[in-house]
């Protein structure tokens, strides 16, 4: 089952500012976020691609807050991380400068299956087999 095709944006894309956006840092505490019902887009900004906190924060927004809007990754991440990011609930990416959309799409679809539960597949492999 391929991942849902997410929104791929260039860093100067006007769409970035079109909607009501809440921008979070990766270390934002979930308890400190109050506006999840009133925004269309939540963006998590990665200061460094090695910062895995944003992966957990995305899942917590989706799975604990049931956030249904657009969840956008921005800042410093690698196209090679997009498959994992999408599984953690991101469905919009502001591509780092110099990233070919084809590279991003290929990275996004690197795997056709996964063992764990994740946002796009809430059942683990062992319950789907």
């Amino acid at each position: 089952m391929p991942l849902k095709q997410p929104e791929l944006l260039a860093s100067d894309d006007a769409a970035i500012n079109n909607s009501q956006i809440l921008v979070l840092e990766t270390d934002t505490e979930l308890e400190a976020i109050t506006a999840t019902d009133s925004v269309d887009v939540i963006a998590i900004r990665f200061e460094a691609f090695t910062d895995g906190r944003g992966f957990s924060l995305a899942r917590m927004l989706r799975e604990q807050r049931n956030f249904q809007g657009t969840l956008r990754a921005m800042g410093d991440f690698l196209p090679d991380q997009m498959h994992y990011l999408a599984r953690c609930g991101f469905d919009s990416f502001v591509l780092p400068e110099g990233t070919h959309p084809e590279t991003a799409t290929a990275c996004l679809n690197a795997f056709t299956e996964a063992y764990q539960t994740s946002v796009e597949r809430p059942e683990p492999l062992f319950r789907r087999q």
Binding site: D51, G52, R59, L85, C88, Y115, Q116
Partner: peptide, 14 residues
């Protein structure tokens, strides 16, 4: 092993 393999959330731990 299966749970930890390519776990999407925990590939960039401290």
């Amino acid at each position: 092993r299966q749970w930890s393999t390519l776990h999407p959330e925990f590939a960039f731990l401290p």
